[in-house]
């Protein structure tokens, strides 16, 4: 499964409003996501907003890759985010035996990692890179046969970081910890 992560914001609270998870429908399709919402809201408001999106995505998904992403978007759009709807950044991947489909919103960059140094994977201007916010229409998905093990997104509005080479450091800088 391709693991999406979102690089932390350059602030004392790098993961305020962040959410991160995955689910699978049996062995057929795996859905994984990383995102942030209400990143400048008070801590409790941001935490609840992130959890709300996370909960919506954690519901069981359909068995087809693209339909999985479409259903995921429907659930995200249905989350009551109020004044924070315009702050959503999200990267999602749906993986099955045939490949990976990738979609997102509010992303400034998507890099590939997990095999050597991180490298830019999505070129500037690609439709996967867009302004933040719950999308009015469902974003498209990029489908590939093979994707890197790690996709590192940078949220729209965040400065471009210098990524560490080590995948564990990449994950740590993206709020993946145990």
């Amino acid at each position: 499964m391709t693991e999406p992560i979102l690089w932390g914001s350059p602030s004392p609270w790098p993961f305020r409003g962040s959410f991160l998870g995955n689910t699978s429908n049996g062995r057929q399709v795996g859905l994984a996501w990383a995102g942030r919402v209400a990143g400048n809201a008070p801590l409790d408001v941001a935490f609840r907003a992130g959890r709300a999106v996370d909960d919506a995505l954690s519901d069981p998904q359909p068995t087809d890759r693209l339909r999985t992403l479409a259903a995921a978007w429907e659930r995200v759009v249905a989350v009551e985010l109020g004044e924070f709807a315009g702050t959503l950044s999200l990267l999602m991947t749906a993986t099955d035996g045939d490949g990976v489909s990738i979609t997102g919103v509010g992303l400034a960059a998507v890099w590939a990692g997990g095999q050597g140094p991180a490298r830019e994977w999505i070129p500037p201007g690609h439709p996967l890179l867009s302004a933040p916010g719950v999308p009015a229409t469902r974003p498209g998905a990029l489908s590939v046969d093979v994707a890197p093990p790690l996709l590192i997104a940078v949220a729209h509005g965040d400065p471009m970081p210098t990524f560490p080479r080590d995948p564990d450091a990449l994950r740590l800088g993206s709020g993946v910890w145990r």
Partner: peptide, 17 residues
Amino acid sequence: LLVVEAVAAIVGPNVDA
């Protein structure tokens, strides 16, 4: 005090354990 929220905002969102 927002202890859990603060820790999630510093280290990452999956603070459940």
